[in-house]
Design a binder for these strands. Structure first.
Length: 564
RNA sequence: AGGGGAGUCGCCAAGUUGGUUAAGGCAUCGGAUUUUGAUUCCGACAUGCGAAGGUUCGAAUCCUUCUUCCCCUGCCA
């Protein structure tokens, strides 16, 4: 794991680490990425992954991958496998084996008995409804449960019976005794164990009681020797509980929880619930649909791991709302692809052009480099023929001001080939341009025409040499910046699915150079002047009809300046 | 009877032990180079740090008051 390492930008977490290392509190750091395996990882998780693994790399520390699997009803093996694949694809490797919070169920149980014996935890018989009432609310203190005064012996007996299956699901809980009057509701005797007869993907039917997040997470961190436990802002209120648990059991380590703001991307949704909805209602083809902001979706779209890492680095780490424009992600991806992608020519929306003075064997072709700055990548021949295709949008009967492409009677350079002049426009009965008759200037191969300037350069492909490819043109999934935060006239949130972009996917047949036919799945190219494209991870078969996904377009000053 | 956070350029974000003209990136706008309107390269872009007072030779940094926004009332994580 050695990535290009620009000088790290200071942030408040690095400052804490620097201080802890300087003071000798820690000799090195250990972080962890702790997803719950109940869904696919998305771009927000990518930030957390880059932060935790990136810090470990920068400080030559370690980073664990831990499945936070304390709720057997919501978690599945499918997600566990996908999470590992995503992390590795992003370019990171965890220390040792994958960890599971469920690995620690025995120890968690033992610590619970310790709390009971110390009189710091009790078995409660309150129903969920009663517990809610006893908890109070934001403006009123809670009141103590009538079961709070049970003796340690009684609690221990009851808790063991809970473990042994003597009670019905949900009939009892184990609570920790803190302060029902605390302003912090998390401290009003939080539940740390509940009874749930569910088969756990790791521990099977061994347990019918399962520990809660707040109780599990801090102990898991401590057991793994985590030094800095990074999480998002909504857990700030939980830190006192994190610390309380570790302070009240016999455990040698006490990691420091530090909270940072969660990443939000404009014009996407990142809540697991909403993403799941898109998948389950078949509004996308799956978790890895290239329009999804999931890591697997971005991968299939053609985003590079380097680009996502660059994006995460640029987004930064702070406690202020980290709402980043989608263009920032695309920009970072583009930036990494520019350097790394071979160039190839494709025409996606063709107009036929007949070169009237083409002479086989006389008017030849040139070879073209795969990358303007990488000679070592070599070249390939680009054959010219009497009939070629050019892009429909590169021709205008009535050109707007500053137009640099083809017009009736106008000239344009064919990339890597001759300058041509449009002599005749042929239309069908509906007025649609179906063919252009052009003549080429034989003195312009590899040199500029004399006596005049031809500024425009367009791409093209020989009709007889081109091969067909399925090309999936992706665009944003939503048409508004914050699809999940739009309120209607009644003040209620409008269903985010109302804002789905009907044009988020257009499948077309395009013409590409034959060299791409044998490309393996997940091979990236730049189609010159069009954008970056990748052979589909699932549907492209080397040697067959190519299937490409448009990753992102090239930056287009012409289009963005509101011309055309 | 509430508790916990945050406000520095359109978007991120350095800066915090008070000290020259408030980093950097994204975006944007100019211009140069270019057989990709791409890339690359130059240049522009906060008399201003949520607001108002105050301390000081000097304040984004310290003090006071005010204000706006976010999170918390699962036997979810």
């Amino acid at each position: 794991m050695s990535h290009e390492a620009p000088a790290p930008i200071s942030n408040f977490i690095r400052q804490v680490i620097d201080a802890d290392l300087a003071s000798g509190k820690h000799a090195s750091i250990v972080t962890r990425f702790p997803p719950e395996p109940n869904g696919y990882l998305h771009v927000g998780h990518a930030k957390s992954i880059c932060l935790n693994f990136g810090l470990a790399e920068d400080y030559t520390g370690l980073c664990n991958l831990r499945m936070d699997d304390t709720n057997p009803e919501k978690e599945e093996d499918e997600y566990i496998a996908a999470i590992q694949e995503d992390v590795q694809w992003l370019g990171y490797q965890w220390q040792g084996e994958v960890r599971y919070a469920s690995n620690y169920f025995d120890q968690l149980y033992a610590y619970a008995e310790e709390l009971i014996v110390a009189g710091k935890a009790y078995v409660d018989d309150l129903t969920p409804e009663e517990m809610r009432q006893y908890r109070g609310n934001l403006n009123e203190p809670g009141k103590e449960s009538p079961y709070r005064s049970r003796t340690p012996d009684e609690n221990l007996t009851l808790f063991r019976q809970m473990r042994d299956g003597a009670f019905a699901d949900g009939s009892k809980t184990l609570r920790v005794k803190i302060d029902m009057a605390s302003g912090n509701i998390n401290l009003r005797d939080p539940v740390i164990y509940r009874i749930r007869r569910a088969t756990h993907h790791q521990t099977g039917d061994k347990w019918c009681i399962y520990p809660m997040y707040d109780y599990t997470h801090c102990i898991s961190d401590a057991l793994e020797g985590i030094t800095h436990s990074l999480c998002t802002l909504e857990f700030e209120d939980h830190r006192p509980l994190y610390d309380w648990v570790l302070n009240n059991i016999t455990i040698p380590a006490h990691p420091q929880q530090i909270e940072f703001s969660r990443l939000e991307l404009l014009s996407v949704v990142t809540s697991k619930r909403k993403l799941r909805q898109l998948v389950e209602e078949h509004l996308v083809t799956g978790w890895d649909d290239p329009r999804m902001p999931t890591i697997s979706g971005m991968r299939r779209r053609g985003y590079s791991p380097e680009g996502i890492r660059l994006f995460a680095q640029r987004a930064g780490v702070s406690k202020t709302p980290n709402v980043v424009d989608f263009a920032s992600l695309e920009g970072a991806v583009r930036e990494t692809l520019e350097e790394a992608s071979p160039r190839v020519i494709a025409v996606l929306d063709p107009i036929k052009v007949t070169l009237t003075n083409f002479e086989p064997g006389v008017t030849g072709s040139r070879s073209a480099p795969f990358h303007p700055h990488h000679e070592e990548w070599g070249e390939r021949e680009i054959p010219l023929a009497r009939e070629i295709y050019i892009e429909r949008e590169d021709f205008a009967e009535v050109p707007p001001p500053k137009w640099q492409r083809l017009t009736p009677g106008g000239e344009v350079r064919l990339r890597y080939s001759y300058v041509i002049k449009c002599d005749e426009v042929i239309k069908d009965s509906a007025g649609m341009v179906v063919e252009l008759k052009c003549s080429l200037d034989k003195d312009t191969l590899g040199q500029n025409p004399v006596g005049r300037k031809v500024k425009g350069v367009i791409h093209w492909i020989s009709a007889e040499h081109a091969i067909e490819a399925e090309v999936r043109m992706y665009d944003r999934l939503f048409t508004v910046a914050r699809p999940d935060a739009v309120r209607g006239d009644d003040g209620e949130y409008v269903d985010f699915k109302q804002f789905m972009n009907p044009a988020s996917l257009t499948v077309i047949t395009g013409y590409v150079e034959p060299v791409v036919r044998d490309a393996a799945p997940e091979t990236r190219y730049q189609f010159e002047r069009l954008g970056y494209f990748v052979t589909d991870r699932k549907d492209h078969v080397a040697g067959g009809k190519p299937v490409f996904n448009r990753t992102v377009t090239l930056k287009d000053t012409w289009a963005t300046q509101g011309q055309a």
